[in-house]
Design a protein around this nucleic acid. Structure first.
Length: 561
RNA sequence: UGACCCAUGGUGUAAUUGGCAACACAGCUGGUUUUGGUCCAGUCGUUCUAGGUUCGAGUCCUAGUGGGUCAACCA
């Protein structure tokens, strides 16, 4: 990796220690194991960056493994969406794996466990099994079926597999310890009967292995060295190891499960169940709504893979609970877009300006720099004329010295154009300002080199020539939730905090160079923010999303009053 | 009436494994700027508490406090 000096996170320390104590670089292998039952979100992005980042750092393979053991919830559509998201983030997996590819091996191992008297078929209902489980403070009771003979267990398990039983009639359980202080060790279920077609194995199987039985064994089959998961799986580690103990051979690598704290982002939710509610209740337009914290939503909103990767690197990984402020994500996308987004001009809240001493019907094409951060970006021509739009917020009849914009009797520069002076304004019957009459200094043209053009005026405004302007739908987004941690209130539902103003649609008046914008194009509307062209956009009806505003110290000043 | 995990600025993460508490974001002040953007400089502020070990503790030990996790035929 490029940065040698970078400090290590605790997972990297674990790997370093393993490397010192006998692992070779060739032993290292990681995996990202999503269940294909929904869309990936920003929390997954951290896990992806962690696992694939480790792969890059140690030049080790990383598998993309679909944990597809529950056909009731999983679909091929999600597999495709997940692959797209991981690729978009910029990572390449070594092998595309499916837990369902291991169904036969898992079955054979289960038969082996039965023969070793370490697993048995339980014929009780799930309610009965649950009632015998005990509580965290009281031990459980053993099932009346716990001591069935090996022969009977073999016969029943075979019957489960061959479809002789209905859903729920029997389960296969590991015979461990009903008195363990770890609830997961109290004879966990390994297999259930489920007559449901699987998106890959179709109807080949009517019994499906449970997560705990599948995950560690899959890691072992793939020879994953470090199996990283979130903290809620910590109690599963004991069981992960118990299952591994039953099958590992000494000439193969034994995977390790290690746990890290899930990253929480402020002002949003990431549980699939809650995201689904937002979609189903129509509070957003879909999984890829630009307000959603899904990877597809972030992509549509205009976030770049680089910005998300940098964000994940910056927040790092640890074991304590955390809430990362979204403003850090904003910072990273601004940081990246500042370097790559061409500057253009557009007015979202128009106020008409007439330059009274500018010739009627005249048009002029001015040169405008495309990106001050990138000389190779070159320049373009923008049209200037007698009638322009500026933002309503950029004009006041009177204002104090802190207001660097246009006021009666005051001067500002029009970006890439001339210095103008506001002489008068007209209002409608309600007192709203409808037009500002200005004069311009013909010798002050930007880049002309004249003494007047070099004059310093305090404010510079963006603008657009009315006769040349094109229109577009512009979608302005705000946080989806008004509360930093909407799902952490015991007395309130997270939906109570949905921000009613999270989407605002306006008509934008844009410089004509934007006419041929294509879906996905990213620009900076100067002084307003970074925008991209939404997938709803057509050549006739352009649609822009505001990815993020620019940093706005003026807004802060004004708030303070 | 248990087991386990965690505790460093407003936020997130570091600290050469016991040796000057650092980085980024946010905030604040100033400079540069034809974007109140960018950039530059400065500033703010922290090891949960009480003991102990040690020449030396964010790091090790003990106790406490606070937060979290665990009882799906989900993953």
């Amino acid at each position: 990796m490029a940065e040698e000096a970078k400090s290590l996170n605790f997972i990297e320390h674990i790997v370093e220690e393993d490397l010192r104590e006998g692992y070779t670089q060739k032993d290292l292998r990681f995996r990202f194991p999503p269940e294909p039952n929904g869309y990936l979100h920003i929390g997954h992005a951290s896990s992806i960056c962690l696992n694939f980042g480790l792969g890059l750092r140690y030049n080790a393979p990383v598998n993309l493994r679909f944990d597809d053991t529950n056909p009731a919830k999983e679909e091929k559509e999600y597999v495709e969406a997940i692959k797209k998201d991981v690729s978009w983030l910029g990572f390449e997996w070594d092998t595309e794996c499916y837990a369902s590819d291991y169904f036969q091996q898992l079955y054979d191992w289960a038969v082996m466990l039965i023969k070793d008297d370490k697993a048995y078929v339980d014929s009780q209902s799930s309610e009965e099994i649950a009632s015998q489980k005990g509580t965290p403070t009281e031990p459980g009771k053993e099932s009346p079926y716990r001591n069935r003979s090996v022969e009977e267990n073999l016969k029943l398990f075979e019957g489960m597999k061959s479809g002789e039983f209905k859903d729920g009639e029997h389960v296969l359980r590991a015979k461990i310890d009903m008195a363990s202080s770890n609830m997961l060790m109290r004879d966990p279920v390994m297999y259930r009967v489920l007559h449901k077609a699987h998106h890959r194995t179709n109807t080949d199987w009517c019994i499906y292995p449970m997560y705990d039985w599948t995950h560690g064994e899959s890691d072992y089959i793939e020879q994953v060295s470090h199996s990283l998961c979130t903290l809620e799986f910590l109690p599963h580690r004991e069981l992960y190891n118990w299952f591994l103990d039953q099958v590992v051979s000494s000439d193969k690598l034994r995977p390790k499960q290690r746990e890290f704290a899930r990253r929480n982002l402020s002002h949003t939710v990431v549980s699939k169940r809650k995201l689904l509610q937002l979609v189903e209740k129509g509070l957003v337009t879909g999984w890829d709504d630009p307000r959603m914290p899904t990877i597809s939503g972030l992509r549509r909103r205009g976030f770049t893979p680089e910005s998300i990767r940098n964000f994940a690197d910056t927040i790092g990984i640890a074991k304590r609970e955390n809430v990362v402020d979204v403003s850090l994500l904003d910072f990273h996308v601004r940081e990246h877009l500042n370097k790559i987004a061409p500057r253009v001009m557009g007015v979202l809240n128009p106020l008409k300006v007439v330059i009274t001493n500018y010739e009627q019907g005249k048009e002029e094409w001015l040169e405008a720099e495309n990106n001050p951060e990138d000389e190779s970006a070159g320049s373009r021509q923008i049209p200037f004329s007698r009638e322009l739009y500026i933002e309503q917020e950029d004009f006041r009849e009177e204002a104090n010295r802190k207001f660097f914009r246009l006021k009666l009797g005051g001067e500002v520069r029009l970006k890439n154009g001339y210095i103008i002076k506001a002489e008068s304004c007209t209002k409608d019957d309600d007192g709203n300002i409808t037009e500002v009459q200005c004069t311009y200094d013909p010798k002050s043209k930007s880049g002309s080199g004249t003494e007047e053009s070099l004059r310093k005026v305090k404010g510079t405004l963006h603008w657009v020539s009315i006769p040349h302007a094109i229109t577009a739908e512009v979608r302005l987004y705000d946080r989806l939730f008004t509360d930093a941690t909407p799902d952490s209130h015991k007395d309130k539902d997270f939906l109570d905090f949905v921000n009613p103003d999270s989407l605002q649609k306006v008509t934008g008046y844009l410089e004509p160079s934007l006419k041929d914008s294509k879906i996905g194009d990213q620009v900076q509307f100067q002084r307003l923010g970074y925008f991209n062209v939404d997938k709803d956009s057509t050549p006739e009806n352009l649609v822009f999303n505001r990815t993020v505003t620019l940093r706005d110290t003026w807004a802060k000043l004004e708030q303070k009053g």
